[in-house]
Nucleic acid binder design. Sequence first.
DNA 1: AGCATTGTTTCACA
DNA 2: TTGTGAAACAATGC
Length: 260
Amino acid sequence: MPELPEVERARALIAARGLGRLIVEVDDADTYVCRPHQPGEIAAAITGRELTAAHRRGKTMWFDTDGGEGPTLGLHLGMAGQIVVDDGIAGDPQLDGHEHPPWNRFTLRFSDGGRLVLRDRRRLGRAVLDPPLDGLGPDAGEITRDAFRARVGRGAAPLKARLMDQSVLAGIGNLLADETLWRARLSPLRPAGGLSAEELDRLRVQMRAAIRSAIALGGVHTGELVAHRVRGGRCPRCGTELRRASVGGRTTFWCPREQT
DNA sequence: AGCATTGTTTCACA
DNA sequence: TTGTGAAACAATGC
């Protein structure tokens, strides 16, 4: 599930329901999800504190503890993670109330009996103290026009690979990249450095629109192109059969007629 | 059985 | 040194 829109919903859920509650117990026993920490390390650092602010850049979330006096807690949803606060599940309300304890990879228990859980079937999510943010580019939803031109519009890599490079721009994953490129009518194969300023501006406008829409509607799955991202799928605008290929290491669908 | 999967990190190679 | 791309990672579903 998680790309920028899902992560933003998770952050908003924690901002609304996870702050200002005393942490009395931490389950950080999953050594892969909590790597490189040892079990008990995160617990020792934040038990007795409370989360006081919820931040996000791209797909990374982090939370201040005790108004900045304590360490920050970083959470990443990986490929299939969700955040549960009490009975609410961020990013997938349809699963609200379902319990799958084996998939709970990291849990904060609060003094009022409630809890915040990182639930992740795939186990590629992360929970760490003081996550490094220096390797991340500007958030895709907030990057300025000039920064977007300078950062995205260079290099020989295919445009889609550049869009998904988290050090260039943070938050765009496979589905959002396909949706954005389709909306902007640009081929994922174009060398990023070969785009004109007009094309880059159009790309940024459509990227922001795709992000806003996905946040409002509930996730990247609500994208117009995304529903047609299957073998034999056709362009929702012109009906041409979509091309399918691996670009930037991920399966990519695009309209060979409109996206040039 | 085999392949694919919405993310990130690591490593090989130009 | 920098940039690019493939493989590995964990686990599940088709």
